[in-house]
Design a protein around this nucleic acid. Sequence first.
DNA 1: AAGTGGTCTAGACCACCCC
DNA 2: GGGTGGTCTAGACCACTTA
Lengths: 255, 255
Amino acid sequence: MTEAMGGPLAIRPDYPEALWIQARKLIVAEITSGALEAGRRLPPERELCQQLSISRVTLRKALASLVEEGVLMPSHGRGWYVAAGGASVEREWPNSLESFTETAARMGLEPSSKILRSEVAPGTYDEAEELGLAPGTPLFVLERVRLLNGVPIAVDRARVPAFLDDRFLEPDYTVESLYERLAEAGVSLAHAETTIEAQKADAEVAESLDLKEFDPILAMHQLVIDDAGRRVLVSDIRYSGERYRLRTTFSRSMR
Amino acid sequence: MTEAMGGPLAIRPDYPEALWIQARKLIVAEITSGALEAGRRLPPERELCQQLSISRVTLRKALASLVEEGVLMPSHGRGWYVAAGGASVEREWPNSLESFTETAARMGLEPSSKILRSEVAPGTYDEAEELGLAPGTPLFVLERVRLLNGVPIAVDRARVPAFLDDRFLEPDYTVESLYERLAEAGVSLAHAETTIEAQKADAEVAESLDLKEFDPILAMHQLVIDDAGRRVLVSDIRYSGERYRLRTTFSRSMR
DNA sequence: AAGTGGTCTAGACCACCCC
DNA sequence: GGGTGGTCTAGACCACTTA
C-alpha cells in the first residue's frame, strides 16, 4: 500500500501513547507488511522525522528500541537497515519476561494447569533469604503442572510473599494467570534474574510430566523483581527437555 | 570516599568516550564502592546534571542503560533507586553475548580447548540455509572441547562462512578465541538468536565431556549476526548439565 | 564534498508522588 | 504546591561513508 515509508504515516501527538512508541509501531508495520524487506535501507533519519512529524531525538528512541530486538541495524555514515531476520518481528519469541500464559497465546496453543499445591506456608530459610524476608515468613506457594493443548510441558513452583494480598488464594489457577493476578494487585513486574541448567528428572517430576526418571529436564530458576525494586516472586520451572525449547536473543553489550 | 554522589565526579568532555558512558561508569563506581547502597535514592536528575556538567538527556541515557541491567529503578515522581541486587554490577552481564573466553575471564578461571575438528568443508543444506548461503558453500568448521581449569565443560561446534578470511585457519584455537579472530577480521558481533534445550548426551559428547551416555546436557544453538546484519556464525554448544549453569536477566519489554 | 548516523545541549511541558 | 521523573523539541557539531 504505502510505498516504502513514503505514505502518510499518521502519528497523533494527542493520543495517549508516547510518540516514539507510535513511531516504532509504524516502522514495524512497514516491515511486517513487506513494504520494507530485510536488507533494505530506511529513509534518512531527518527525512523520517519530517514524514512522522517528530523530532530526531524521538525518532532515534524508536529506532534504538528496534535495534535491541534485532529488527534494525544502524550503519554509521550509511543508513539504517532492516536486519536479516527482520520479517520475524511477529514470529519471534522476544527476549522478554513472559508468563506461561502469554507464551501459549503467542504460539496459538491452549494453556491449562493442574494444581499440585496451593497454600500459604512458612518459607524455607533459602526462600526467605532470596526474597529478602525473615525466615518463616508466610509465603503463598503455588505448584502447578503446566500443559499446552493437554500435553504436560512443565512443573512450576511459584512462591509469593503472602503479605501482598489475601485474594491471591481465591482465583482458580487452573485457568488464571499468576502474572495477571499480580498485575491486578498493582505489582508491575520489571525483570527476572534467571539461571538455567539441564538436570535429570527426579521421580516426582517424572511422574507429573509423564516422563521416565532420569530423562533430561530444563530447570529454570527465577527471582522476579517489580518496578519498585521489590523481590516479589521466586519460581522454579522444570520443563520437559523433549517438549520445550527456550528461545531468546543475546545482544553484545556496550558497543 | 566521595560522599554519595556529592564529590567532584569528573567528566571530561574532550575525552574520546561518550559522555553518557563516562556518566554511567561514575554512577556504577558510586554503587560498587558502597557509597550508594541497594535501596538508596539517587540525587534528583537535575542535580546530577549539574554535578556531572552534562545535559539531562545525556544523563538519562546513562540511567536508562543501567535500568536495562537491573542496577537502577526509576520511580515516577519519587526518584531513582539502587535496585535490590545493585551490588551485582560486576558479577554478570545480563543478556549479553559473550564468548567462552570472556565468560571464563569474568569468572576468574583459565579457559582452554581441545580441538576435535578444524577444517574447511562444504556446509550441509541446513547450515547453508541458516547462514543464507547456497548449499555446499565452504564453511570453516571448528569443533572444540572447552575446558575451565582443565575440566571439560562443553563441546562447541562453530561454523563460519569461509569466504570471510583464509587466515581463520592459521591461529592455534587451543588458546585463541574465535570471537577475537572475528573481531580482528573486522566482524563486529551484534546479537545472537538463541535456542536452549535439555537433551541426553549421545555417545560422542559423553566421551568428550567425560560423562555417561544419557546424562543431561544443555544444548544451546546460536545464529550470530554482525553489525552489518550479516549472518556470520552458527554455533552448537553442548554443556555438561552438572558443570554449567546459564545466568541471565530477562526484562519485561515495553514499559 | 555531500550525505548520514552519533552525540550533546537547553529548555519546555506533562504526569505522578507526597506534603 | 513543590519536587521528581517522562516525554518532546529544535538545533548544533562531530565522525564515518561514499563518490
